[in-house]
Computed example of a mutant assay.
Amino acid sequence: MIRFALICSVALGALAGCSDPTRQVLFDGLPFKGRLSADKDDKRNFVATAAPVSQSLEGAREAARFEGTSYCVRKYGRSDIEWAASPDAEATALNIVEDVLTVQGRCSE
């Protein structure tokens, strides 16, 4: 019985690691790597990144926005964000370092 449970757990873990490329969200027709980290003290505050910007600046903007919006909807049930460093800023004002766009926001209450 324990062996069966262990085998099932390993199989489920292996399947969970698989990604379905047909379900991948594309931005400007391209895949982007996005990440989000929430503030430890106030989880409504977050920093989101998207890369590589060199593929498409517009795609990177939308990928970073998607990370923030998805987070706020999952955690607080709303998509409203107060941007401190907006993905809509002028290109020269965006925080782009080593081909990674970084934005900052706060999930609205």
Rank of each mutant, 00 (worst) to 15 (best):
M1R: 14
I2H: 12
I2R: 15
I2F: 10
R3V: 11
R3N: 11
R3T: 10
A5V: 09
L6P: 00
C8I: 04
C8V: 02
A11M: 01
A14W: 08
L15F: 14
L15Q: 14
L15T: 02
L15E: 13
G17T: 00
D20W: 13
D20E: 14
P21S: 05
V25S: 11
F27N: 02
G29P: 15
L30V: 08
P31S: 14
K33Y: 13
L36I: 12
S37T: 07
A38N: 02
A38V: 01
D39N: 15
K40M: 06
K40D: 12
D41Q: 15
D42Y: 11
D42R: 15
D42M: 14
D42H: 14
K43L: 09
K43S: 08
K43C: 02
R44Y: 01
R44L: 01
R44D: 07
F46E: 00
A50I: 10
P52T: 10
S54D: 08
S56I: 09
E58P: 00
E58D: 13
A60H: 11
A60W: 09
R61K: 15
E62D: 09
E62H: 07
A63V: 01
A64K: 14
A64F: 06
A64M: 05
R65V: 13
F66V: 02
T69K: 15
S70L: 02
S70E: 06
S70K: 12
Y71W: 07
C72N: 03
V73T: 14
R74G: 03
Y76P: 00
S79C: 05
D80C: 07
D80L: 08
I81V: 04
W83Y: 10
W83I: 05
A85D: 15
S86R: 06
P87H: 11
D88V: 01
A89Y: 07
A91S: 04
A91E: 10
T92S: 12
L94S: 10
N95Q: 12
I96P: 04
I96A: 02
V97F: 03
D99H: 05
D99R: 02
V100S: 08
V100W: 13
V100E: 14
L101C: 05
V103H: 04
Q104R: 12
Q104S: 11
Q104N: 05
R106K: 15
C107W: 03
